[in-house]
Design a binder for these strands. Structure first.
Length: 421
RNA sequence: CGGGGUGUAGCAUAGUGGUAGUGUGCGCGGUUUGGGACCGUGUGGUCCGGGUUCGAUUCCCGGCUCCCCGACCA
């Protein structure tokens, strides 16, 4: 894409009403637009990143045999009344609104109830199980206090996956597969080394739930990590008994601030029983379906990546989710011969299927470099009059600052040998 | 939801009971051209409602907004 055509522009100054690094950088670089507190629109650059994150998660979910669907944001109160989660005293962060005829409806906070009801009309036999369904969908939560930029909003995107199994053992097998699938997601987006599977409270049919916690100063949680074993636990479950049960030593636990970037739950029959989701087994007996739920928020993950990987110059995207692989920066754009040459390089990238943002704007070098650093594309290729005369072009790796001077042939050889985009 | 702040141009900020200033952005002209360059010029503003006052952006009341701390939460 030509940067001159991109409708967003970068900003030098940070918005006064944002204190979180992720929102400051994402707004300055033109990835997101703040609509109101805790509510952000995703602009062209931001959508590219979000879609890449979504695609990585999708691939890992599909790999485990989950089927993608999408449910509604508008919610029928009836199904929530069945599980006693409609009442504002039970769930206090509903957004509720009314139909013209006065009927109350909700804006989706999660989807256990509606999906369980859907499944009740398709699951009837043990032959139908197990099955796994997931979606990417916007959740609405009426937070009393939105904060941390895009990481804790009132409207945010969630990947929620649910399993419908015949029994606990079958559920557990899937649960363990998803734990590994989540690990792969965090590896693929470049924060695997910072992300711990953490014991936490909130288990319904087990003592603990498990959270994926990414170590960051921007985090709102406190976890205790045994670095030798990689075992971590949330502060909310930290006590001597638990430490002993997990075979840990109190002295070896290190406290870290962290972001809850995903979680996995055993649900048991909490939803299937009240909503009448059951199946007939081989003996003809009626058995409630055993469930689990698995959450991972693409928008929060995007914010987490900015928080954890950015440097003082701006965002640093890992290649796997960057909006483009290459930032082609043309200098001396008053020289038509050079512009033609840079246009040719740009066309070659496109022909090769390498995603490229082409800074063809009529701007000074300093401004272009500053913008390039801020936007955070993994590789920057500078085409200038001097470089063209020398036949060597600067290729800078954003993450490390490593600068190489390569001929055009070397550049193509380099990108062709590293085709991952 | 409790507590504390805040609101001035697209953005960032100063100031004042009496014609609202600066930086940046944006437009135009010129000099520049490898790290947000410079000169000139133009454009553009007091959150909403009420009150006090000859006069309110300023003071008072109410509302809303946004931010921070706490509680709550993927």
């Amino acid at each position: 894409m030509r940067q001159s055509k991109l409708f967003t522009k970068t900003r030098k100054e940070v918005p006064a009403d944002e204190t979180s690094k992720n929102a400051q950088l994402l707004i300055r670089a033109g990835y997101v637009y703040k609509e109101m507190a805790g509510v952000y629109s995703y602009l062209p650059l931001g959508l590219r990143v979000l879609n890449k994150i979504i695609q990585i998660i999708r691939e890992e979910m599909n790999h485990e045999g989950a089927q993608e669907m999408v449910m509604t944001a508008l919610q029928d109160s009836a199904v929530w009344e069945e599980t006693d989660r409609w009442d504002d005293t039970k769930v206090d962060n509903w957004f509720k609104t009314k139909l013209k005829n006065g009927t109350e409806v909700g804006l989706s906070i999660t989807h256990e109830e509606p999906l369980t009801r859907i499944m009740a009309s398709y699951i009837s036999s043990y032959r139908d199980l197990p099955l796994y369904a997931y979606q990417f969908q916007n959740k609405f939560r009426n937070e009393t206090r939105a904060k941390s930029g895009i990481m804790r909003g009132r409207e945010f995107m969630m990947k929620d996956l649910y399993d419908f199994s015949r029994n606990e053992a079958e559920h557990n097998e899937f649960y363990n597969r998803i734990r590994e699938a989540y690990r792969r997601v965090f590896e693929r987006v470049g924060i695997g080394h910072l992300t711990y599977v953490t014991f936490a409270s909130g288990g319904i049919f087990s003592e603990f739930s498990e959270e994926f916690q990414t170590v960051s100063e921007a985090g709102e949680d406190l976890i205790y990590v045994d670095e030798a074993s990689g075992v971590a636990l949330n502060k909310e479950v930290l006590n001597d008994e638990v430490i002993a049960k997990l075979g840990l030593k109190k002295e070896s636990l290190v406290e870290k601030k962290s972001i809850e970037s995903g979680n996995i739950f055993h649900l048991g029959t909490k939803f299937s029983e009240p909503l009448g989701l059951s199946y007939s087994n081989e003996e003809g007996e009626t058995i409630p379906v055993y469930m689990g739920s698995y959450g991972l928020g693409p928008t929060r993950l995007m914010g987490t990546l900015v928080e954890v990987l950015a440097d003082e110059k701006g965002i640093v995207w890992p290649e796997s989710v960057a909006p483009f692989k290459v930032h082609l920066v043309a200098l001396n754009t008053d020289n038509q011969e050079l512009v033609d040459y840079a246009d040719g390089i740009y066309a070659s990238f496109k022909d090769k299927g390498i995603e490229v943002l082409y800074d063809d704007r009529d701007a000074r070098a300093g401004e272009k470099f500053a913008d390039s650093d801020l936007i955070g594309i993994p590789y920057r290729l500078v085409v200038s009059k001097k470089a063209k005369e020398e036949g060597k072009f600067e290729v800078v790796t954003r993450a490390t600052g490593e600068t190489r001077r390569l001929t055009e042939e070397e550049i193509w050889a380099d990108f062709d040998s590293n085709p991952e985009t």
